[in-house]
Design a protein around this nucleic acid. Structure first.
Length: 484
RNA sequence: GGUCUCGUAGUAUAACGGUUAGUACAACGGGUUUUCAUCCCGUCAAUGCGAGUUCGACUCUCGCCGAGAUCACCA
């Protein structure tokens, strides 16, 4: 396959949200699977909207997802610089060439006058097109004056790798601004120049640019350069309504999900498959799989809704997959300290791994760890109502429960081999001796040692908790029942 | 309003013009010696509407309806 040179070109105006990170994932996949180049370019030409630190946020997001760029900030590359503000002279240069060729002009028309034109046309109910108000006299260009494209109204046809064959009429072509008053280029102009100079083969971006395509095509033509391939990605829709997901509607940043306990593997998997599939029934893809199977022609051409529930399901799948395939150490290493309960920091890694090993298969998010494992690290608050109100235990009297706890404590106290297997056997023996149903006896023990809404299989929980703590908690619970 | 795009269950999607319209998430029910989860089994649920082409249409054509995007010295 031909080597693809692709780019992700965000503007540093804030965080990257899940609605637009796919325009980083797909270019990455395409570049990597063809042995090409993935470029990160920062489009910082809008100084008014520039947000300090946004570039770091962008880099952090890509790095977290493992979308490493071959050219761009930090790593450099043959087409440096990768910040548009540092490429200013390139755009001016090309704009001047267009002026020389009679395909662009300096336009000193003040903003108020332009507003007037717009209002006039609107009043007349005709489409507002600046080319109908093009100044008759041409002036010499100098800093501080915008440069506009001098368009030639005509029809265009083009191919989009996702949308298929597209066309448009002359009515959408206009004299768009190339260079702004501040001397910096507009997106419309800058991206074309940069893509050209950087050798970009596939322009992959959101569908919202579709309506600007004819103007871009006119520009390619006027500049006398070949068109790259166009790949328009459908929108990701907000959970409610049919709107495109945007920050205004509260789209979360990709890194918010990181803090919520989503693994990057799951995020990449979910996002890549939102609006793309390989035609099989496969749901779980790792990076290698995606690189192997991704193809532009199977990108969906209608919008897809972002579904947090499915993401969470997929995250659970990934937590188990990593444990099962790579082992507890690898899984453990992926869990940041913040996800553990506060009190866990007093415990050695070894112990925490044991806890993780018996709890991992019920985590949907790493942030579940806090609520699921606290009782392994600190003494639970005894709440006898959890026992007395339990649906399996409420028919037993308090005396009976106390006796039961005493029996269990005595039996387990005699235990010399505190292993899960042995505990399982002992628990079974207790079942026979007391004549209780598992639901009753095990619920009682489970609650008495954890006071948690749920916990792993009892014998495993007890093993990790250890003999001393198990006995202490059983006795404490028994005493609490007595005084209740 | 102009222009462009899209339309399969609640959601994400599959189906050379030929199946009983498949799969996954969710929901609901059941099973695996407690709970939660995993795992397994099952239930519910879809081709926007109307014509046309065809022996046969989710698939091709047209019209309608619905939804979205865009019309900046923002990207």
């Amino acid at each position: 396959m031909e080597k693809a040179i692709t780019r992700f070109a965000p503007s540093p105006t804030g965080y990257i949200h899940i609605g637009n990170v796919r325009s980083a994932i797909y270019p990455y996949l395409l570049a990597k699977q063809t042995g090409g180049t993935f470029i990160l370019r920062i489009e910082d030409t809008d100084q008014a909207r520039y947000v300090e630190g946004a570039t770091d946020l962008i880099k952090e997001t890509l790095t977290w997802l493992g979308l490493n760029w071959d050219e761009g900030p930090d790593v450099g590359g043959p087409h440096a610089p990768y910040f548009q503000t540092e490429r200013k002279s390139h755009y001016i240069e090309w704009a001047k060439r267009l002026i020389a060729a009679g395909r662009a002009y300096a336009d000193p028309t003040p903003a108020e006058k332009i507003d007037e034109y717009r209002k006039e046309d609107t009043a007349k109910k005709i489409p507002y097109l600046y080319r109908n108000h093009r100044p008759e006299e041409t002036i010499e260009w100098q800093e501080g004056i915008p440069i506009r494209f001098k368009t030639e109204p005509k029809s265009y046809e083009w191919h989009d790798e996702v949308m298929g064959d597209l066309s448009s009429g002359p009515e959408v072509l206009d004299d768009i601004i190339l260079i702004k008053k501040d001397g910096l280029p507009t997106y419309n102009f800058a991206h074309i120049i940069d893509d050209l100079e950087m050798g970009v083969t596939h322009v992959i971006r959101g569908q919202e640019y579709l309506s600007s395509m004819p103007n871009y095509l006119a520009l390619y033509e006027a500049l006398g350069i070949d068109r790259p391939k166009f790949v328009s990605l459908p929108h990701i829709l907000a959970p409610q309504g049919n709107k495109k997901l945007s920050k205004r509607d509260g789209a979360k940043s990709v890194t918010d999900y990181k803090n919520d306990g989503i693994l990057p593997e799951a995020m990449l998997n979910y996002l890549a498959c939102l609006g793309w599939n390989d035609g099989t029934e496969q749901e779980i893809y790792d990076r290698e799989d995606l690189l192997k199977k991704f193809s532009l022609d199977r990108i969906q051409n209608s919008g897809a809704r972002f579904d947090e529930t499915k993401l969470l399901w997929m995250n659970g799948m990934w937590i188990r997959k990593i444990h099962d395939e790579e082992g507890i150490d690898i899984l453990y290493a992926k869990i940041a300290e913040d996800f553990w309960p506060e009190s866990a920091k007093n415990y050695p890694e070894d112990y925490r791994k044991k806890v993780l090993a018996i709890i991992y298969d019920r985590l949907k998010s790493l942030s579940d760890l806090k609520t699921y494992t606290t009782y392994f690290f600190e003494e639970p608050r005894i709440d006898t109502s959890l026992i007395l109100g339990n649906k399996f235990l409420k028919k037993s009297s308090e005396d009976e429960l106390q006796n039961l706890l005493a029996t269990v404590a005595e039996r387990l106290g005699n235990e010399t081999d505190w292993s899960a297997d042995r505990l399982q056997t002992t628990l079974n023996t207790l079942l026979e001796e007391t004549g209780k149903k598992p639901a009753e006896l095990f619920s009682l023990i489970r609650i008495a040692v954890s006071f948690a809404p749920f916990s792993p299989a009892l014998h495993l929980t007890l093993e990790v908790l250890g003999k001393d703590r198990t006995l202490a908690r059983l006795n404490a619970t028994k005493l609490a029942l007595e005084s209740a």
